[in-house]
Design a protein around this nucleic acid. Structure first.
Lengths: 371, 371
DNA sequence: TTACAATCTGAATCCATGC
DNA sequence: CGCATGGATTCAGATTGTA
């Protein structure tokens, strides 16, 4: 949890540390292909920071005419493309990124992500349960922020814990709109004067959902705009490693203290609901080899179609032979068919899906074995 | 309501007509500074690959129309900037624009709007009450689309009927997220074969809210991607004038017939009836995300059974895991169980049902909202 | 006629693995 | 790289069919 300066020549990953400095420069010192996930909450105020420059590098003092507006957009785009390029380099090939923003900056970030070759997986709306009203009544209450979830490149095998998110949502597929409260109360960090320590502290519930959805325990999560360390705090709770980058000394100190106070959850509590896809593949032929089904035995479909088991683990139907899936698809006239749930066999007068036999084999495989 | 070709030399506005042709060329024939509002539903550039089937093997009818095909992001950007330039020219100085899109295109549209000097007022999220699920379980349900509302330039005195929208929202400020159903049932236009006439017809409720919010009776609304004319139909209902531009003859014909059937509202009929929302469903996982219960914390049943909370909102018991309801039913040997009243946690020495926490969340959510 | 059940569908960047 | 194959995967609402 120490705060230290990144060494550009470092090759090993500085895990669970908050690195001091400009995020682009610090990222240049991190090794390529080393991080599983990036969560980024970049600055989006185009005027306040005074760090934006025109293409000729002159400072933008005031954004009050069309040219300055364009110049500041261009400068913001350059900044965005620079940090995204480093982010992409640091990510593992199958890594992914989340970026959060509002209408001031998110469209520019999204276009930059696409131009850079990131592949957008979802845009997610954080619907704030208790937003600040629009006091002047001149616009709609700005009641949401937008997150973009993108893989490093098209075709990457990104992490998505589908069943865990479905469980989080009471058994119904998680949607792209998330209703969560803003960060208030005791969760909101205060400075010595009792004022809020950071203007845009994100709620831990938001990071909880992001990290449960798209990382596994032990993964490395990088946050290049660390602020007061919400990403690090939730990563630690959830048994993930983090790397934080933050320029402001004050934020680094608050974040380090905050994270030191975090008590990680029990390992057993971090196990999540997994999908069938993660289970080992069992060839149908194994059932025949083990004598659970005899060659010559007849399987029956829900609609009464029949097929005969052969010694090599294929099925023989009237006019064709093939795998349990192929014969099922043939009978249904369907593009595909899950033969495990389609075919049934008779035991004690009842029709039982052959998937039950697969489950028995998997249960045997799950028993602890000598090592 | 006639369908006719735009004359480039025309100076007077062709009100309540559907102009035939490419929207950029037709817009070039319209006079500068003449339109109060533009509503645009441009092609999304979906870039779909192969076929997609539902789990029941039925095929999803994809948007694979020729008008949604673009060679590259660069080609899409050129197209976007071209039609936006004409849109800006045609708008009155205090005019405004709405553009709707998905993550495939909206970031590029938003950046182009900003670059062109439009001034974004809000981004609005249309939260679909009944979206199509993600059938393969590889991403989140894509449950929303994004609208951008922007004035022609910074400082423009745009129209915003704050009180009307507040009234639409049970007396509370309208938020930037709108929950509306997708266009189905009798509202969805069908062709002679009984199939949907247009693949992406928008619901009238969406246009109703847009036009009530940002136009006054008598205003002129231009829709450069008119399709089957939802904008025109709602404009006519609400006593606004419209100009439609549509390239496809078939869509123009359907739109003209549709609009001819519209009966404009009486002024007094503009009152809307609002129904009380059903009590919102609160997933148990929300309590974990929000830190009301910690992963690893032990819940207790009235008979002393225990189970441990996991990070994804499931419970772990001795020999099983599952939802709060499933584990409760397991312990009771019952077919079902209301986990909310069954499970308790300890606070200040007392056992408290977890339903109390759900009630706290509902109290937050029950504040009147967009629906 | 009513009630319930079965069927259909919606702007979708929707698989993983081995040969 | 392409191609073949195993086999995992859905929610709300409207419409149609049946008792």
């Amino acid at each position: 949890m120490a705060t230290k300066t990144a060494k550009p020549e470092a090759v090993s990953l500085p895990l669970n540390e908050i690195l001091a400095g400009d995020c682009i420069e610090v990222m240049r010192g991190l090794p390529a292909g080393s991080v599983d996930l990036i969560f980024a909450d970049p600055p989006y105020n185009l005027q306040l920071r005074g760090e934006l420059h025109r293409p000729d590098n002159s400072r933008v003092d005031a954004v009050d005419d069309h040219w300055d507006q364009f110049a500041s957009f261009a400068a913001y785009d350059r900044f965005t493309r620079d940090w995204l390029a480093e982010a992409q380099r640091i990510l593992k090939p199958n890594g992914a990124i989340w970026v959060i923003g509002s209408y001031h900056n998110i469209f520019r970030v999204g276009a930059a992500l696409q131009d850079q070759g990131f592949w957008i997986l979802n845009d997610v709306v954080w619907r704030k349960a208790n937003p600040m009203p629009n006091f002047r009544g001149k616009r709609l209450t700005n009641a949401h922020e937008t997150l973009i979830w993108a893989s490093r490149s098209e075709g990457a095998k990104y992490t998505f814990n589908y069943e865990a998110l479905k469980a989080l949502n009471e058994g119904v597929q998680m949607r792209s709109d998330w209703v969560l409260p803003i960060c208030t109360g005791s969760e909101r960090l205060k400075d010595a004067a009792g004022d809020k320590a950071h203007p845009t502290q994100k709620p831990e519930s938001l990071l909880h959902r992001v990290l449960v959805a798209t990382t596994n325990p032990g993964d490395v999560v990088l946050d290049p705009f660390f602020g007061t360390g919400t990403t690090g705090a939730v990563a630690r709770m959830l048994g993930r490693s983090f790397i934080g980058i933050e320029r402001e000394e004050g934020y680094r100190r608050i974040a380090a203290e905050r994270i030191a106070r975090v008590r990680p959850y029990d390992r057993s509590a971090l196990e999540i609901t997994t999908s069938k896809r993660a289970e080992p593949r069992v060839p149908f032929g194994t059932l025949v080899e083990r004598g659970m089904l005899r060659p010559g035995e007849v399987l029956v479909s829900p609609r009464g179609q029949t097929a005969k088991v052969r010694a090599d683990g294929t099925l023989a139907a009237d006019r064709m032979t093939g795998s349990i899936h192929q014969v099922g698809a043939h009978y249904e006239g369907a593009p595909s068919c899950n033969g495990w749930t389609y075919w049934h066999f008779k035991r004690e007068g009842k029709m039982v899906p052959i998937d039950l036999l697969r489950q028995q084999i998997r249960a045997e495989m799950d028993r602890p074995q000598a090592h």
